[in-house]
Nucleic acid binder design. Structure first.
Lengths: 175, 175
DNA sequence: GGAATTATGTCAGTACTATTGACGTAATTT
DNA sequence: AAATTACGTCAATAGTACTGACATAATTCC
């Protein structure tokens, strides 16, 4: 049972001693797990996974983004994106359009089908968020929004702010 | 470029129309990604992954939990846990102790080494949380805590409350 | 105009985490 | 004695990620 040179078992629970916020660390884990479980159900019907969801989400949020931009947002490699993107294109959820200025680029856009799926995936998540705000008696939605934003690495917050209000047609005034 | 029967590209960004809270959905993704990236750095030095982190975390939080309880908390299968747990035991981060009442059970305890690693992994995460609370001007930590808890499936909140103040097993002599 | 760089796509190989299903053993319960 | 439970293990598979290498077309630089 206990191997030869095994250390002795520590029988006391790790505490919020040491100023470590185990409560929120743990809650974040549970919250995110359940948050992603909603769309996972739907995705399974399509033979898709979470990677497809993320791609679909960002293509809907920033229509016309290029492959390189998408890789940058998702922080994954080209090879990881390849299969997933191909499947979404083959199933007519996303279309590629040759870049107008630079014809090497592929601008990614959702189709009506892709838009519909993105909405279907977001619906239960949004419902969960709304319910959580109510149940927790959070009067200011912005409190949660600011906290989550502050959890993101500062260098990357720029990526978030690209999308803010209504973005029609050619978004982003940067680059 | 555009395949034969491809749908037309939608050029407008999906909006918070339809009452869908895309802002928080997206922030949650970014926040969790960066939140987990801190320990990932450390884990890589040990040849461990996130699965090891989660096991180590819960064994430290609830020393003496059984394999079955751990599976229930993590919501993974026995087979997924097997390799990870074995590695943590082989590297002397966790020890198994035969259950006192039921000798079929294996109670899991951290060793001093396992306790130290759990703390090292939690430290940057806790730092990030504290900084985020400050940066976002959240005066009440409890607001975030309540929100995150409300995001968790109600059936599973019981798992969370197991740990709160003084914990587990027979010995709650700490503070 | 020619060279270098960039954007994208693809191939091969690998790793980690997860799954389902089946089977074995020991201990406990009925 | 039989059924159930707790745990461990084996085989096979899937999804997502990685690194490194290479090809193509388009753009930019000199």
């Amino acid at each position: 049972m206990t191997s030869p040179a095994a250390g002795k078992p520590i029988r006391t629970a790790i505490a919020d001693e040491d100023g470590i916020d185990f409560a929120i660390i743990e809650l974040f884990f549970f919250a995110y797990r359940d948050f992603t479980s909603d769309p996972d159900q739907i995705l399974a019907d399509y033979g898709f996974g979470r990677a497809h969801h993320r791609v679909l989400h960002f293509v809907n949020r920033r229509p016309g983004l290029t492959v390189a931009e998408l890789l940058d947002v998702l922080k994954i490699t080209k090879q990881s994106l390849a299969r997933v993107l191909k499947q979404l294109i083959d199933t007519d959820h996303i279309v590629q359009v040759q870049g107008p200025r630079d014809r090497r680029q592929r601008e990614l856009y959702p189709t009506a089908k892709g838009r519909a799926l993105a909405l279907a995936l977001a619906r239960p998540q949004s419902r969960r968020i709304r319910a959580a705000l109510e149940d927790s008696g959070t009067t200011e939605r912005a409190t949660i929004e600011r906290f989550l934003e502050a959890m993101v690495n500062p260098e990357l917050r720029a990526q978030i702010d690209i999308v803010p209000a209504q973005t029609s047609g050619k978004n982003h005034g940067d680059h």
